[in-house]
Design a protein around this nucleic acid. Structure first.
Length: 424
DNA sequence: TCTGGGGTCCTAGGACCC
DNA sequence: TCTGGGGTCCTAGGACCC
């Protein structure tokens, strides 16, 4: 058996830990630039606030219902995520951290356990140790565990725990095919055209037909729904194959200098990401775009890719390459709303990646420089040391986060202060 | 006025090889 | 008139996830 444990309304729940007055209140967390809704409390969902909904569409709703609004505090959520995952490790021999707020727990070899009691223990322990509510779905396959988790959340009588172990036909009939893990919008509407409306309907389809139209991925999902495990639990975290840093700007940028500063900053962020997983990039792509949501404006969008003769993770080289690309793609006279730097063909030395014959002393120098830079910035804060090409205050200047909560758990200065008044 | 960011996997088709 | 067989690599595009 495998369990899917996830945190309910994760970002909102993190905010509530340090501000319990938010419990029972409608709360939402916004995307970068405070643009869209990316997390909602149950109370906010009840107000019909949609996932991904632009904030400007619901200003009135927010005001009327006193919805509590937060900018996304990724430092906080990342740290809280680590706490949850570390707690979950106590409950299974192996876990796969699947996303910031969910993990698969491998329960194989635990057939004799009372899984209901075990799941209850998980919920209570995470609540006690970290302070966030989780739901638990348990089933023979990952796809079914996801489905069980969904049911656990939806049907309150199960109190956040749902186990499917044999005879789950009626449950499959109750779940729309588009709500199955791995069936997205396109596939869902395609399947519906063929009368496949529920998860159960999908299990009744012909294997070859599913294989043909939904690829092997779809076939695996079908078999998993039938109880046959096809997707294994991946316990070790694979190195990323691509990394990128992209942003939508609060205000459009018009000058090459501004766009160049942004790209330099994105390149530097990418460098940090590479060095954290100790890999180097062979390809760098940079792109710039106008606002496609403003149809009245002249539109322009272009990208260009350069390759490094020797893979690199040096911020200096990445920034230089981004600048080179900008020279190629920048056109004056447009209002740039979005830009990004993407790195590809990453090599991982530890995983037997290729070492270039032409590796030079220069490279070693960069390595040492980058280690020093990372160490200084880790201690004194991001961008304490940066390239001259980056903005004075980094990309933060370009985005808006008006409702940011304190980094309670990752910055001493922002830790909760509790005053205890004299009591005799 | 205001609309997120960061990833993965699969397939078809073209180019190329012997 | 008749025109092989088997393979790899790469890329673009399309799907999906959180």
């Amino acid at each position: 058996m495998v369990a899917l444990v996830d945190v309910n309304n994760f970002y909102v729940s993190c905010e509530r830990v340090f501000c319990p007055a938010l419990r029972g209140q409608p709360v939402i967390v916004l995307s970068n630039n405070d643009g869209c809704v990316v997390a909602r409390s149950d109370e906010a969902k009840a107000l019909q606030i949609g996932m991904g909904q632009p904030v400007f569409e619901i200003r009135e709703l927010i005001r009327k219902n006193r919805v509590q609004v937060f900018s996304s505090n990724y430092a906080l959520y990342g740290d809280m995520s680590a706490r949850v995952m570390n707690t979950l490790r106590q409950f299974a021999p192996a876990i796969e951290v699947y996303s910031v707020d969910e993990s698969f727990l491998d329960f194989s070899g635990m057939e004799r356990f009372d899984l209901q009691a075990h799941a209850l223990d998980i919920r209570q322990t995470v609540w006690r140790w970290v302070g966030v509510p989780v739901s638990v779905g348990i089933a023979p396959t990952k796809v079914l565990a996801k489905l069980a988790n969904r049911l656990a959340k939806k049907e309150t009588q199960y109190k956040g725990i749902r186990i499917l172990s044999g005879g789950w036909e009626s449950e499959l009939k109750a779940v729309e095919v588009g709500d199955v893990w791995g069936i997205g919008r396109q596939y869902a509407s395609f399947l519906q055209r063929y009368g496949i409306k529920t998860a159960y309907d999908l299990t009744q389809a012909n294997d070859a037909w599913v294989r043909k139209h939904l690829t092997v991925v779809g076939l695996r999902i079908k078999k998993e729904l039938e109880g046959e495990p096809c997707i294994s639990i991946e316990t070790d975290i694979p190195n990323k194959k691509n990394v990128g840093t992209t942003r939508t700007f609060r205000h459009p940028l018009t000058t090459k200098t501004e766009v160049g500063e942004a790209l330099a900053d994105f390149a530097a962020r990418c460098g940090e990401k590479l060095r954290r997983q100790q890999s180097s990039a062979t390809l760098l792509t940079a792109y710039i775009q106008t606002n496609h949501l403003a149809p009245g404006e002249p539109q322009y969008s272009r990208s260009f890719t350069v390759s490094f003769t020797t893979p690199t993770n040096s911020t200096l080289q990445l920034v230089k390459a981004a600048k080179f690309v900008l020279d190629k793609i920048f056109r004056a006279g447009y209002r740039y709303k979005r830009a990004g730097v993407l790195l590809g063909e990453l090599v991982h030395p530890n995983a037997g990646g290729q070492i270039s014959l032409f590796d030079t002393l220069d490279h070693e120098k960069h390595q040492r420089l980058m280690s020093a830079l990372d160490a200084v910035n880790a201690r004194f804060g991001r961008n304490t040391v940066r390239t001259a090409a980056q903005t004075i205050v980094g990309s933060a200047r370009l985005t808006q986060q008006n409702r940011l909560s304190p980094c309670y758990t990752t910055k001493w200065k922002e830790a909760l202060r509790i005053e205890v008044r004299g009591e005799r």
